[in-house]
Amino acid sequence: MREIALNILDIAENSVKAKATLVEITVTAENNVLTVTITDNGVGMSKDFLERVTDPFTTTRTTRKVGMGIPLFKDAAEMTGGSFGIESEPGRGTRVTAKFVLDSIDRAPLGDIADTAVTLLAPGIDFVWVYTVDKRSFTFDTREIKAELGDIPIDSPEIISFLRNLLKENIESINGGITI
């Protein structure tokens, strides 16, 4: 993947498939480490499945025999000298954690979090994005947005466009001129 944000989208897509109703994504840049966590309350995985999940041939897909989302994210993190881990419990949910060494030349750019976050907006599922750079933090919580929207669906194109701009402005301000 050309951007870490695209890996995040891909991992969040797993949470959607796992029937999660709440997905929390944290992106934290601090002390030369970029930490990404994706936590969901979906169906989870058994211990046995979890042990094999970083193998590309582990998938519950029916459309093809390989699952690339997790192996790609793991490689992207480990290539920088960082680390990767998954915790999961059947019936409770899953947490994926990836740590990237920020100044590694093998690190992909973080990429566009705003463009990424809005593709996931949907009525039946909530997302919380917490974006932190050197202790400056911005939280985007679709539960708050939905409360404001009332009966207007959060995935109306006009709302998606607006929220993308809201996210872009806030992330830029947190970044304070640097590109991660």
Binding site: I145, E148, N165, E169
Partner: peptide, 8 residues
């Protein structure tokens, strides 16, 4: 900067 308040 845009905020949630603008959603109304």
């Amino acid at each position: 900067m845009k905020s949630i308040a603008d959603i109304k």
